[in-house]
């Protein structure tokens, strides 16, 4: 029981990060139909910027806020410079543009920062907390708590504020949104900024546990994409559930099977789910219209 709980905690911690990355995918996908494979780079940038801003003398909280702002600006630039000019291109072409962006950002991080692994100090020390015989680090609580706060804030924003609702409306029907006077450009810009910001936040929260480096984004993007697909692309609830499931599957796989195959467990589950539910757990199941 203790070991199970232990695996569950570590699964929920990484799962929370995957969930945030998956939410980032979802927000951009809903606003623009683009699968942004540079999403993992936002997480990397959040961690790396914070590390270096504090190395350059900023206090940690200030460094973290600055990192979120810088990453959001990069997200906005990505939209302006690479996605908007390619409007109307085919889906695979757009995916390759975002992959190009991710290679570019990785290269940029390597030049501006370095190729080393970096860590941040834990936010509230390292004294483990005992929960029913299993231990939980304070930083894990920070990650899970932070992710929960992000989810709640996003939920509030998208369902309770006029601007958030107009973003949702745009995702359902862009033409109609334009017709009722929604500024679609602003919606796109906000989506990229928001997506980058939450990615950066996740990166900052998790860096004390997992360390970070210029190439940490690729695997996170893969896992986040997997989580979003598992939940059903475009569905925020699906993204969160998918993220947690992938995290838990991975932790259980590592714990009970073998650490080498921990990733395999998650992907086997995803393949299994897709064979039964071709549009994920919560994906839209529409009949084809002809």
């Amino acid at each position: 029981m203790e070991t199970f709980l232990q695996f569950l905690f570590s699964g929920l911690t990484v799962g929370a990060v995957y969930a945030i990355v998956a939410l980032g995918f979802t927000i951009i996908y809903n606003a623009s139909d683009v699968i942004n494979f540079a999403q993992g780079e936002f997480v990397m940038l959040g961690g790396m910027c914070t590390v270096f801003f504090s190395l350059w003398g900023l206090p940690l909280p200030v460094a973290a806020v600055a990192a979120v702002i810088v990453t959001s600006l990069i997200g906005v630039a990505l939209n302006k410079l690479a996605i908007e000019p390619a409007r109307g291109a085919n889906v695979v072409t757009l995916i390759i543009i975002t992959i190009g962006a991710s290679i570019f950002l990785r290269g940029l991080a390597q030049v501006v920062f370095d190729k080393q692994f970096h860590r941040l100090p834990s936010f509230s020390g390292d004294a483990p907390i005992d929960v029913l015989g299993a231990t939980l680090t304070p930083q894990s609580l920070w990650v899970m708590g932070g992710a929960a706060v992000i989810v709640v804030v996003l939920w509030y924003f998208f369902t309770r504020t006029t601007f958030g609702k107009s973003i949702l409306a745009t995702s359902h029907n862009r033409l109609a949104a334009r017709l009722v006077g929604i500024n679609v450009e602003l919606v796109l810009l906000t989506s990229f900024a928001l997506s980058a910001a939450i990615g950066a936040l996740a990166g900052i929260l998790v860096t004390p546990i997992t360390l970070t480096s210029f190439d940490a984004g690729t695997m996170l993007a893969l896992k986040g994409f997997a989580a979003a697909i598992l939940g059903g692309m475009g569905n925020p609830l699906g993204a969160v559930v998918g993220g947690l499931l992938v995290g838990i599957a991975e932790a259980m796989g590592a714990g009970y099977l073998s650490s080498e195959y921990k990733d395999a467990v998650a992907f086997v589950i995803i393949l299994g789910v897709l064979f039964v539910l071709p549009s994920g757990l919560f994906g839209r199941r529409g009949t084809e219209r002809v």
Binding site: G100, S102, I103, F104, R106, G107, L108, Q110, V111
Partner: peptide, 8 residues
């Protein structure tokens, strides 16, 4: 890498 990404 930056150049490769930019070219792509």
């Amino acid at each position: 890498h930056m150049i490769l990404g930019a070219i792509l």
